[in-house]
Each structure stands twice: as structure tokens, then as C-alpha cells.
Design a protein around this nucleic acid. Sequence first.
DNA 1: TTAATGACCTCCG
DNA 2: TCGGAGGCCATTA
Length: 119
Amino acid sequence: MDEKSLSFYEKVFETARHIPRGRVTSYGAIARFLGSGRSARLVGYAMNLSHMAFPPVPAHRVVNRNGMLTGRMHFETPETMQRCLEAEGLTVRQHQLLHFKEHFWDPSAHLNYSDLFEQ
DNA sequence: TTAATGACCTCCG
DNA sequence: TCGGAGGCCATTA
């Protein structure tokens, strides 16, 4: 599969893999980076499939716009997502990320779409 | 082919 | 400032 055949969710995977350890981003931020800021739901759908993706996708670093761990139910156990984040130095309270803004990592500010998907 | 679904976001009252 | 409703678009049945 060449870069042009990359489906939307494969681009989501590739973007998510670039999220630095200890940082997080949002579905909407990824959607905007991929060119369709209104496709945030598709990013969520893509994360559903990320379990069988290889290389692995750090899906736990993707939360919703408020820093809530809305996707925790889709991990092996509802605690998995929180544990992964805490293992990276983040603090989770009531299924919500503390200091979300400070740890927020915006793909469109650190990555270049052309570099990733168009060489 | 049509209809329904979804780990969301934004706008409007 | 807060809450509700609509919209978006790929994938699956």
C-alpha cells in the first residue's frame, strides 16, 4: 500500500505514533491535522481499529477535547488507559487528565502533513 | 445501495 | 456561562 492508498484511519495511526511520550492530543486536533476538522468522530472510529494495528498505536495518548478518557472502555480493562498515562508521568483524576493544556501536543504544530504522507 | 453507527466537535439559544 | 441539538464522514450490516 502506497501513501495514496492510506485510508483515513491509517493516517490517524501514523499521526498518533508521533505523539511524544508523556504528551497527549485530541481527536479533533488529529482530524484538523489530517485536513478535515469535522471528522473527529472518524478519529475515534480509527482508534477502535488501532488495537490490531502494527506498529502499535499509543491510543491512550488520544483523548477528547476536554481531556477526558472517553475511550478507556475500549481497552482491555477500563483502567488500562489511565495506567498507561500515569506511567508516562501524567495525572488522571475522575477519568480526566489534569493539566491537560500543559501536556497537550498539537500535531499540526509539530508535524508536517507532507512529510508524513507525501514524502 | 441504503441505513445505521460512532473513543467527537461546534454552533446556537 | 451552560446545555442541547446538529453535523461530519468512513465503515459495516
